[in-house]
Amino acid sequence: RIEKCYFCSGPIYPGHGMMFVRNDCKVFRFCKSKCHKNFKKKRNPRKVRWTKAFRKAAGKELTV
């Protein structure tokens, strides 16, 4: 099963990425440490230029 990165919305293939479980049992999956570090710094994915959330908000990503 291919999961989605919580921060950048990129695909996470089986055996890859990192799973972060908070004390309230909420699960966050990250494709790379870059995404996990930005999440820990409480960065907003919509303001980080390389994420899909930014591209969609800025009108750069074509949605079908």
Rank of each mutant, 00 (worst) to 15 (best):
Y6N: 02
M18R: 02
F30C: 04
C35R: 00
R43E: 15
M18F: 11
K26N: 11
K40Q: 12
W50G: 11
V21P: 00
V48F: 10
R49I: 14
K41V: 06
H36E: 15
K41Q: 05
K47L: 09
R29T: 08
V21N: 02
K37D: 15
H36A: 10
F39R: 00
R46I: 13
K52G: 13
G17P: 06
V64L: 08
E61Q: 02
R1E: 15
K37F: 04
K34Y: 04
F39I: 01
V21M: 05
N38D: 13
K56D: 15
M18C: 05
H36G: 04
H16L: 08
W50V: 06
W50M: 09
H16M: 11
R43G: 14
K42C: 08
K56A: 13
R43H: 14
M18I: 11
H36W: 03
A53V: 10
F30Q: 03
K34V: 10
A58V: 06
K52R: 06
M18K: 02
K34C: 01
E61V: 06
T51Y: 03
M18Y: 08
H36R: 02
V64I: 08
P45T: 11
G59W: 06
R46L: 12
K56I: 11
G17Q: 08
V48Q: 09
K37M: 06
V27A: 04
K26F: 04
G15I: 02
C35I: 00
F28G: 03
F39H: 06
Y6W: 06
R46F: 08
C31Y: 00
R29A: 10
K47M: 12
Y13N: 12
M18H: 03
K37E: 15
K32R: 06
K40V: 10
P14A: 02
K42R: 05
K47Q: 14
G15V: 02
P14N: 02
A57H: 13
F7P: 00
I2C: 03
F28Y: 09
Y13T: 13
M18N: 04
N44H: 03
L62M: 09
A53T: 08
C35Q: 00
A57G: 10
S33R: 01
C25K: 07
I2K: 02
R49A: 15
C25V: 05
R46T: 14
K42A: 12
E61L: 05
P45L: 05
R49P: 13
V27E: 12
R49K: 13
K60F: 13
M18D: 12
E61C: 03
G59H: 09
H36F: 06
F30E: 01
K60A: 15
R46H: 10
R46C: 11
G59I: 06
G59A: 10
K52T: 14
F54M: 11
V27S: 04
F7K: 01
F30R: 00
G59F: 08
C31F: 00
S33C: 01
T51Q: 10
N38Y: 04
S33W: 03
G17I: 03
K40N: 08
G10C: 03
R46V: 13
A53Q: 10
K37S: 11
T51W: 04
D24E: 04
C25A: 11
T51D: 15
H16S: 12
P14W: 01
N38V: 01
C8R: 08
K4N: 02
N44Q: 07
A57I: 07
F20L: 09
K56S: 11
F54Y: 09
M19A: 09
A53M: 06
F7R: 01
I2Q: 09
G17A: 07
K42I: 06
V21F: 04
R49G: 14
G59V: 10
R43N: 15
K32P: 01
K32C: 07
A57C: 05
S33V: 05
K41H: 08
G17N: 06
C25M: 09
N23I: 08
D24S: 00
V21I: 09
K52V: 13
G17K: 05
H36V: 09
R29C: 06
V64D: 03
A53E: 15
W50T: 12
S9Y: 07
K37Q: 12
F7C: 06
R49M: 14
S33D: 13
G15E: 09
M19P: 03
R29E: 07
R46K: 13
I2G: 09
P14K: 03
C35N: 00
K47Y: 10
R29Y: 11
K41I: 02
R43C: 13
A53I: 05
A58M: 08
V48W: 05
N38R: 02
F7S: 11
K60W: 11
K34I: 07
T63I: 03
V21Q: 07
Y13A: 11
D24C: 02
F7W: 12
C31L: 00
R55P: 15
A53K: 03
K41S: 06
R49S: 15
N23C: 04
N44I: 07
E61F: 03
F54A: 14
S33N: 05
N44E: 15
A53C: 08
H16K: 07
F30K: 01
C31V: 00
R22A: 13
P14I: 02
H16F: 06
F20Y: 06
G17Y: 02
F54G: 12
R49Y: 13
V27W: 01
W50H: 11
K40S: 10
V64H: 08
G59C: 12
K60R: 10
C35M: 00
F54S: 14
V48S: 07
K42T: 10
R1Q: 10
R22D: 15
V27Y: 02
G59R: 05
N38P: 01
V27C: 02
A58S: 10
R46G: 14
K26H: 09
C31K: 00
C31A: 00
V48C: 08
H36Y: 07
C25Q: 10
N38C: 00
A57D: 13
F28M: 12
F7I: 12
K37G: 05
I2D: 10
P14Q: 04
F30Y: 02
Y6G: 11
V27G: 02
V21Y: 06
M19K: 05
F7M: 12
N38W: 01
K37W: 04
K26T: 11
R29I: 03
H36P: 01
P45S: 08
F30L: 02
K41D: 14
Y6E: 04
A53R: 01
N44F: 01
S33F: 02
A57F: 01
R43V: 11
P14F: 03
V48E: 13
G59K: 04
F7D: 12
R49N: 14
K42E: 15
F39K: 02
M19W: 04
H16G: 10
R55G: 15
K26D: 12
R55S: 15
F28A: 05
N38H: 04
K42D: 14
K41P: 01
R43Q: 15
K32G: 14
V21D: 03
T63A: 08
A53Y: 03
G15M: 02
T51P: 09
A58H: 03
W50A: 09
N23W: 04
H16E: 12
K37N: 11
V48Y: 15
K47T: 10
W50Y: 11
K37I: 09
Y13F: 06
V64A: 09
E61T: 01
R29K: 08
R22C: 00
G15R: 01
R55N: 14
R22L: 08
A58Q: 07
D24V: 00
I2A: 06
C25G: 11
M18E: 14
C25F: 06
F54H: 11
P14D: 08
T51C: 10
F7H: 10
R1D: 12
A58I: 03
F28K: 02
K47C: 09
E61S: 01
S33E: 15
T63F: 04
C31M: 00
Y6S: 12
N23D: 13
K52D: 15
V64P: 12
R43F: 12
R22H: 10
H16I: 09
Y13D: 14
K26S: 12
R43I: 11
F28P: 01
K60I: 12
F39S: 04
M18G: 08
C25Y: 05
R46D: 15
I2L: 06
R49F: 09
K52S: 10
K60H: 09
